[in-house]
């Protein structure tokens, strides 16, 4: 069981608020996608979950225990780029996690233990579709293959939570689709919680069982930095009834994260199209309407 609780998190840089009043509870085995216009603070949210940054106030708990204030092996991560070590082969990149965790040069796995680790790493690489490339260095792999490697590297640590920061943002559409299949597969088989930041609405609806839209509720056009963002929409999707992908429209492709208005409109249309697949709606925007 892994339950992530974000409890009234505020984050500001100098005097500029980025996030305010962010509270959400993610139950075990959730696939949570975080959407939002650029600059809204969705990556900041992920960095807080990763302990790359500490919230100005509020806290994050996993199973009721506040997360450590440094990145730790209980939370794995895949970034958009630079997630793998360029000086190690694919196999070594996957083996390095357990090796590092085992401790120093003298306590690292040797002999039978090392062979066991090697086999585990190799089968994990096989699983993510890199069985043929275990001796290649990252620079010899394509962008999609590097991300597969990064996922395998994180998976071998069996983290409770896997954090993904726009992991497929730099990939072409076909590669992206095959990566979606891979990540859903791994998520279902390993029963972990995934939190993924993306600016691709289609991706968010395709993968997520939970969609959080991080955006500004209050916006002062004369002082755009006056208010921080919060969770404006919080959708729970039925994992067994994924929203129809047929709603992919031209404008979805054009959804620009630089234009908050178009993003909000397209998000609303997607929510509508998702229909019965949406089990529950929440978020600050809903509350604002209710008032």
């Amino acid at each position: 069981m892994t339950e992530i609780t974000v409890d009234n998190v505020f984050k500001s840089y100098a005097m500029t608020p980025v996030l305010e009043r962010v509270s959400v509870t993610l139950p075990d085995h959730e696939f949570c996608t975080i959407l939002g216009p650029s600059g809204a603070g969705k990556s900041t949210m992920l960095r807080i979950l990763l302990s790359m940054e500490t919230p100005t106030s509020g806290q994050v708990l996993i199973d009721g225990v506040p997360i450590d204030d440094e990145p730790q092996p209980d939370r794995g991560v895949v970034f958009q780029r630079y997630s793998v070590f360029p000086h190690m082969t694919a196999l070594k990149n996957v083996m390095i996690g357990p090796e590092l965790k085992a401790g120093n040069w003298f306590t690292r796995p040797l002999g039978a233990k090392r062979r066991q680790l090697r086999n585990r790493a190799a089968s994990l690489l096989e699983e993510v579709g890199l069985g043929h490339a275990i001796d290649k260095f990252p620079s010899q792999l394509s962008g999609g293959m590097q991300q597969r490697l990064a996922i395998a590297q994180a998976m071998i640590m069996e983290p409770k939570v896997l954090l993904l920061d726009e992991p497929f943002g730099a990939l072409d559409p076909a590669t992206k689709r095959s990566m979606h299949g891979l990540i859903l597969d791994l998520w279902e088989r390993n029963k972990m919680t995934i939190v993924m930041v993306t600016h691709d609405i289609q991706e968010a609806f395709t993968l997520g069982t939970r969609i959080l839209m991080i955006d500004k509720v209050r916006d002062d056009p004369h002082a755009p930095a006056a208010y921080g963002s919060t969770i404006t929409h919080d959708l729970k999707l039925d994992p067994n009834r994924r929203p129809p992908l047929a709603v992919v429209t031209e404008d979805t492709m054009d959804a620009s994260e630089d234009d908050p208005h178009s993003m909000r409109a397209i998000f609303a249309r997607w929510t509508e199209n998702a229909g019965d697949a949406v089990l529950e709606k929440g978020g600050a925007a809903l509350k604002a309407h209710a008032d």
């Binding site: 970034f79 630079y82 590092l100 994180a154 640590m157």
Partner: peptide, 25 residues
């Protein structure tokens, strides 16, 4: 910086990061 964060999520210590991640690069 991503690499240093990544190494921490793999459980690396300061010395391990210096000798195994930074030195070779």
């Amino acid at each position: 910086r991503e690499q240093i964060i990544k190494a921490q999520t793999l459980g690396a210590s300061t010395l391990q990061i210096m000798t195994q991640i930074i030195l070779p690069q």
